[in-house]
Design a protein around this nucleic acid. Sequence first.
DNA 1: TCGATAAATTAGACAAGGCTAACTTTAATA
DNA 2: TATTAAAGTTAGCCTTGTCTAATTTATCGA
Lengths: 150, 150
Amino acid sequence: MTETTPQASDRSIDTQASGFEAVRQAHQSEMVEDYVELIAELIHQNGAARPVEIAERLGVTQPTVSKNLARLKREGFIEQIPYRSLQLTDAGRQLAEACRMRHRIVVEFLIALGVSPEVAEHDAEGIEHHVSEETLAVFKGFVRRTDETK
Amino acid sequence: MTETTPQASDRSIDTQASGFEAVRQAHQSEMVEDYVELIAELIHQNGAARPVEIAERLGVTQPTVSKNLARLKREGFIEQIPYRSLQLTDAGRQLAEACRMRHRIVVEFLIALGVSPEVAEHDAEGIEHHVSEETLAVFKGFVRRTDETK
DNA sequence: TCGATAAATTAGACAAGGCTAACTTTAATA
DNA sequence: TATTAAAGTTAGCCTTGTCTAATTTATCGA
């Protein structure tokens, strides 16, 4: 019992709880974000995005992709005609673009900081979903300053 | 095709898939890590860690905590006698200490970078579970250099 | 010491996101 | 054009982590 005073911790209990709540929220959107981002990437790289390739890139099975795409469709992010390339709706494109930017910033930030490119990519995949606007702005500023110094 | 940005284009599909796999793995351990870390914190702050307080801090209900504690017990991280304070096993203490260190480094890193303390705490909660050893070492180095400059 | 209150557990439901197995549909080609 | 291989879906199961409602158990103050 080193800290005797109850307010010894600088954070209120509510603040702490809302932090954990936010993490749970983030987990809810991760799947959707990963999918739309990947679909945009595939369309950009290959001119088409197909479920089988999403499965391969994410390292999951086709039925899993099928089920998750149904959710994306239900939520209005994609349109799908079987055996044709998936298409992003306007909302989907918008979300994908935001995710792509955020992903790029996180990766570039880590690299600017001195993390190896492979690990930067790897860690960014998990980190990007938990970076607030404020932190993202700080990352961006750091990258910009580093670039200028080069 | 993939314009000037360095990433995606030169990454193998396997590497990408293993990244997503790692994120899924991380999610599996998050609960355990959050709980042992919080239990250690509560013991340190209050001299005792009780399920009801864990529920409050995490912003979840008591039955949720009850169920999750059963898993921690099953996996050998805690010992529990109802209505007594939870106790960490050696393994639990070890894990808690590692998590505490990592958490501290991430928070200090974000603050050193210029993120506000509240947001740093908030974001760290989500980020910490996705930071590799390499990246953590880089964070640590950055904090050290910043401290020296002060 | 006993009874009210708070703490904890149990039971049962639900949503997400994985999986395998089995099936259907499309496309490619012989 | 008829077959076959690949792509996609469906059905059904599992695990995790959440919830509410109901129940049990311990503690503490009158």
